[in-house]
Amino acid sequence: MIIAEGKPLVEVAGLIQEARKVLVVGCGGCVTVCLAGGEKETGILAAALRLLRQKEGNPLETVEVTLTRQCDPEYVDMLEKYVTDDVDAIVSLACGVGVQFLAERYNKWVVPALNTKFAGGTVEHGVWEERCGLCGECILYKTGGICPIIRCSKSILNGPCGGSQNGKCEVNPETPCAWQLIYDRMQALGKLDLLMEIQPPKDWSKSRDGGPRKVVREDVRLA
């Protein structure tokens, strides 16, 4: 899922300083699962914003809505009845995708309440880790199911570099060296010989470097 994290309250408040009435819009997708932008967090943010503005002597009216997903026009449309003339801004607690979908659909000032961090998973309740670099061409079959693109600080395809020590990355003693993990796994699987193959430079045009990407599936299109 997409992992996000709330922006500092004061920062969000600063983005809507001029507004008197805002829609605070949560998302029922990834950010609900990673406890950053679901119904609960939407309620907390709205309450905190109101409190802050009340303290400043500039009361704020909030309307809370949590959409099933903000990255899907079908659900984004459902916000329409709340987007009244007196709404000055929309605060989105979705990832960057949701923020943009709201901005594309509604002629209002839309601001993000979260920082979108990475594609990852829950390693324990309250702890999320990055796992996928969204590079557009998966090579996990070459590395024992451990991604060097995103889990190695230098995205090395022929690792590990000289900074790997005691299983940790030189960048942060808390971070496991992805290439140590790959080595251990390949050894356990009896496939160390695969690591002797020189991996050629990656085709980054399949990644963000090729410009904004698009996936089209003709078989499922309706029009």
């Binding site: 500092p8 309250l9 907390i44 905190a48 409190l51 802050l52 303290k55």
Partner: peptide, 8 residues
């Protein structure tokens, strides 16, 4: 923490 941020 939120109350601290708000200044309450």
């Amino acid at each position: 923490k939120i109350l601290d941020e708000i200044g309450i």
